[in-house]
Structures are given as C-alpha cells and as structure tokens.
Design a protein around this nucleic acid. Structure first.
Lengths: 204, 204, 204, 204
DNA sequence: TATGAATGAGTGTTCATTCAT
DNA sequence: GATGAATGAACACTCATTCAT
C-alpha cells in the first residue's frame, strides 16, 4: 500500500498493535522492550514512536482494543436461539483458538490496572458495555425459564464475567485446558440449570 | 533476640517477605525496586541479599507463601456445620480485610506465572491442595443435598476457584466492592441453590 | 513567484534563516529541533535540507547573517552629528525592539563559538568589521575633544563592544531592562565624559 | 579517604562538580554527556547519579558554585589600598590563569539562563551579591576622588560587571588575549580616570 | 551481620538525516 | 521541489547485584 494514502497510517498502527499485543503477551508488558516489538515487525525502534507517543500509550491502546476482540467473539457466540451450554462451549473454543498461549495479556492488563487508575477507567467502561449485553442475554434466559427466579440477574452477569476471567487464571496456573473447559461449562450449567422443570431442560 | 541463633535468620526472612509482599502489591513486582523493599524495612539494600539470592527468588518465595494466608482464611471459614452462603459472605469479608487495596499481588503472580513455567508449577501445587480441600467440602454439600446431582464436583471445585479469582479481576477493573460481593454470593448461590427440594433451602 | 527562478531559492533560504533564528533564539540551538524550524514555517523537515546541508550549516549561516542586522542598527544610530549619549540610548532602544526577549541567540553563538574554531573565525571577521567602523566614530569624538586623550582608541573600541555584549549578559541574568539601560549609558558616559573642559559637555 | 566518613560524600560531589565543570566547558553543556563526565573521573555513569539527581541538577549546582570562584578572585584582588588599575590587571591575569581555555562555561550558563528562569534566579542572586561588594569598592573610589561625581555608582557597578562579561565575549570570538586585556584596562581606566584633578592620578 | 558506594548492562526516547514517492 | 515515513546512533537515567569496609 502506498505510504501516502491515509489508510496507510491506520494500517501501520494496527500492525504495531498486533505485534505489541503478541510481544507483551509473551514476555509481559514490563519485560518486553520496544525493541522487541520493533524487531518483531522488522522496523526500527524509532518507527514505533511515529505512531505511539510512548510504550505506555501503546499498551493503553492495546487495552482499549483488546476487549473489542473479546466482545466480537462474545456476541457472535451467544445468539438468542442457541442452547446456552453449547454457546458456552463454542465460546471457550473460540477464545482458546484466538488467544492460545497468549492468555497472559489479560493478567498484564489486570496487573497494570491495579496500579493505574486511568487504565482502570478504560477497562471499566468496556466491561460495563458487555455486561449490559450479557444481561440482555440472561434476561432472555429468564423468560425461557432456564435461569432460576431466585438469582439476581445483574449479579449473575458479573458472576459470569468473573467466572470466565477466573477460568483464565486457573489455566495460567497450569490446570489442563480440558479441565478448565469442564469447569467453565459446569459453572455455566450451575447457573442455567433447569430447576424444578422438565420442559426447560430441553432447551439446554 | 541474638542475631546468631537460627530463628533470627528465619524471622528476618519473614519480615522481608512481608515487606516485599506489600511493596510488590502496591507497585507491581517489576516496577518495585529492591530499594523500595529495603526502605520499607529500614535496612540497606545489601541486607536483602543476605536472605534472598535475587529479586526473583524473593518473589517466588512470596508466591509460595501467599496461598498459605489464603488457605488459612479458606479453612477457617468454610466449616462443615455452617451454612454455605454465610460462609461465602464471611470469606469475602475476611479476604477483603486481609488484602484490601492490595489485591494486586494476585495479578502480579498470575502475570509472572504466564511467562514462567517454574512459577506455574509452584502455583499448581498449592492450588491442587486447596482444590482438594474444597472438593471435600463440596462432597459434604452433596450429601446434604444442597448441590445438584447433575454437577460434576471436581469441575465445580475449579469453577468455584475460578469464580473467586474472577471476582478479584472485576474488582480491579473498578466494579464497586459491594457489587462484586453480590456477584460472588450470587454465583455461589447458583451452585448451592436448593433445586427441586424444599427442605434443602433451610440449610443455605 | 515561479519556483524555478533563482530568486525563489534565495527567498526560501532567507525565510528559513529567519524562522531558525527565532526558534534557535527561543529554545537554544542544541535544544531546538529541525522539526521546530520546519513547523514554524509550515513546511516539512525534508524541505530544510534542500536549502541547508545540515543543522550546523544552518546555524553557521545565521551566525554570518546575524551581525548584519546588528551592524545596520549600529550604523543607523551613531551618526557623526548626533550627540553620543543620545545615540547610545537610541541604540539600546532599537536593539531591544529588534531582539526583545530573543537576546538568547547571542549566547548560543558565543557558546558554540567557544567549542568551534570555524565559527570563531566567522565571528572574528564581522567583529573586526564593525570594530573598524566604531573606531572611526571614536576618532571623530577624539577630534571633538569628548574622549580623553589618555585613552587608547583601539582598546576603547573593543571595550565598547565588550560593554554592549556584557549588557546583554546582565539582562539575561535578570537585571531589569531599565537598570541595564542605565548601566549601558553610564558606562558609555564614562568614556565620553567631558573631562577638564566645559565646552565639550555641550556636545554630549 | 574511607568511604564511610561523611566528608567522603561531600568530596565526591566536589570531584564530580570539578570534572563536570571542565567537561561542560570544553564540549558545551548540551553536547557533553554524563558518560564524558564519568570517564573523566574514571567512574561509572551510575555513580554520578548517586550524587546528583540529573544532568540538569549537576549543571545547576555548577552554576551555583561557579560564581564562588569568581567572587574569591574578585575579593582577593580589589583591596582598598591597591591602585585600581593594578588590581584590574591582576584580576584579569588571575581569571585567565584560573579559567584559561575554559571560559566557555560562562556562555553555557548565560545560554541556558536565557531559556530557564529558575537558573536565571540563581544567577541573579549571586550577581546581586558581588554587585554589592563592587559598589562598596566604588564608593571608596568616590571618596578618594578617583571616580567622577557625575557617574551614578550603582549603574557604574553594573557597567563594570558588564564590561568584564563582555571582555569574555570578545575573547571567545577570537580577539587575542592581549588585546582583550588592554580593552579591559582601558574601559576600566575610563571609569577611574583622574578627571579634573591632578592629585588623583597618583593613586591610579 | 550489615552497609551503601559502585557498577554496567539495559531501556525508553529523541532527532538529525535520508530517500522513496 | 516537497513530503514525511523510516532510520539508527545516541543519551539520560535506572536498578539488580556486588563487595570493600
């Protein structure tokens, strides 16, 4: 692509973001160097600074972009007409395929967020967003009577998010992926369990 | 205490571990300096190296010790004769009191673990330990018929651990602690919900 | 003006010199960047290199041109038929108006000259030039008996130049401009003082 | 000197200041690197930062200390009972011996001061100090009737300072030192010239 | 046992300069 | 002529680690 077109700059940024995402994920944000990122792209360190003012800004940008990919997978998986448990499995598999060994970036993000309130705000905003989406989904489930009436939907929403984030933590501590998958599904099932009713079980 | 007795060395190590735990939690492992730790203790940087061979070793030691505190709280809370939901609330409150704003260290640990397989092994071992304890507890619940027969206990165990870890992640992204508490309890309830039975509800 | 004619090139050079003069004066030669200069002109960095081979050459060119402005003010002020003290005051005011807060460039020049013999030569040449002019002026004063016979004119010439340069140094250290003006005039008066004679004082 | 005594730290600072003074004078503040300074001392770069927080602080410290040396020479030269012209010559020679080729630092200082108001304040303060001393000296001269009554002493004080500073500028532009010396003495003489009186000339 | 001065390998960042377009 | 993306050599500053005292 010719360098003069405006898209070029945007694409270059994206390429850097992708590379940095990988590098930060592999080595950790603090240990990875700008040179690592540059080398992964085959450009000079200086070039990075044409697109991002600092390592920190680059990282923040990643933190902003990161949930987008997550959201995309989330939305594309949990359709209203699918059976929840199947969706959950599909979600797990898609996430795994997307991130693979790279799950580390989540913890880089959480770790930084715990010392950086600005970053915390960024994360909060996106989290609120898909929390809302998730809650809509759960309300749908409530109507189909596959979620217990006793459960507070808003809290269950956050519990589900927590469950997923937590699944990543237990993977990172070395639990085999298969076990983690089962834990995820089992936690999910606990919430969507067809209580007291026969017909509901058909929709699981 | 005379400095020559072996207990002294042990005590000194412990004091360093405590200080480092705080400092690493506040600033992050990579950003905190050995000098920060030394200053918090009012000793010289060099002194730290009399007790720990390197910053990394100091951190690993923390990672080994950290779950002990966790385990202690876990065990002291979930007694066999208490109602699970109450125990869960108590657990949350104790954890909060113990760690407060310092939750950050978990993510430091996960973050490092995701780039360091040695550390991963350490974490795995301790996690397995309290997974076992937790599973015993759940089996007890199964007997009291407050956990659904359809749920696989081993998976539910990991789901619970994941749920808790995940609760920390959503706190770190800025969700109010009260909301996080409710999410924790609600997730917990979903698992321990008195399904199909009336009498079980009494034991919640 | 069509861009192909040679005058264009000359005009472009002049515009760059003017902008660079300002920028270097404000930020200091070493701290100012070529980008600063380019931005002040609204052109690209690369464009500067079409007219000047390097930042250093650009600076040297300024050093060559700078005294021209000075000389112009000098010559236009100290006419033979004016009273010296009035001329001195006028000179001060004109210089101030011309350079204002921008006096800094002199020191950039002196500072560089003290590490760069090539630059030193350039400055020497122009200084010799207006030293000669100044000396003519002083000889005129000698004839009018307003300069003491005991003073060596050549040395007094350099003393005057030094006095002026020094006045800039004391302004830069924060002496109020009014005080500096008085110091300049008083130093000037000391040289042109009507000694032993009454009639001379009329011409001051 | 043993490293533990408190004087050690002070001496180390002094050694660094001296080396930095030389290096900054030779290369210019902005071009000189901390490594240059370190190498001149035969220590590591890091060592410098044990004594000075930054290159800028090191420079400011020099700016603060620099006038002390100047003041010392000034005070030791211009005693009340010496003949002014002789003192002036002595002063010139001492300054030359002290600074030699290193006069450049003055311009580094002025140049930085013209972009840095904090530094300006520092310089102002010390300048005020020796301006006061100089003025006392001139008042003495006034009493001895070797300074013309028509001259404002305060302004003459600053004119003298300016004259000296200016002498440095003309040396740096390449005027032979001998010529500069004569210019300095001649400017000085113009101020201390025995006007209207015969007897005063004896004291010059 | 403890200190703290010193080290030196790195790291983020800047910027004069080049060159394909 | 002009652009501006890219380079790469610096450079200020940091910090884990060492070691003489």
């Amino acid at each position: 692509m010719p360098r003069v077109v405006p898209e070029y700059k945007e694409e270059a940024r994206t390429r850097i973001l992708t590379a940095a995402n990988q590098v930060f994920g592999e080595k950790g944000y603090r240990q990875a160097t700008m040179d690592d990122v540059a080398k992964k792209l085959g450009v000079s360190k200086g070039a990075l600074y044409l697109y991002f003012a600092s390592k920190e800004e680059l990282f923040e940008e990643i933190c902003r972009a990161e949930p987008l990919a997550f959201k995309e997978i989330l939305y594309s998986t949990f359709g209203e007409n699918k059976k929840p448990l199947e969706s959950a499995g599909e979600f797990f598999d898609k996430m795994l395929r997307r991130y693979g060994s790279n799950s580390g970036l989540s913890f880089e993000i959480f770790s930084e967020a715990s010392h950086n309130s600005g970053l915390r705000r960024v994360l909060k905003k996106t989290q609120d967003e898909y929390a809302a989406t998730l809650m809509n989904y759960l309300e749908e489930g409530r109507k189909r009577e596959i979620i217990d009436k006793d459960l507070n939907l808003r809290s269950i929403t956050y519990a589900l998010i927590a469950l997923w984030n937590g699944i990543e933590t237990i993977i990172v501590t070395g639990l085999p992926v298969e076990d983690a998958r089962r834990a995820w599904l089992e936690g999910f099932k606990a919430i969507f369990l067809p209580k007291n009713g026969i017909h509901a079980s058909r929709n699981l």
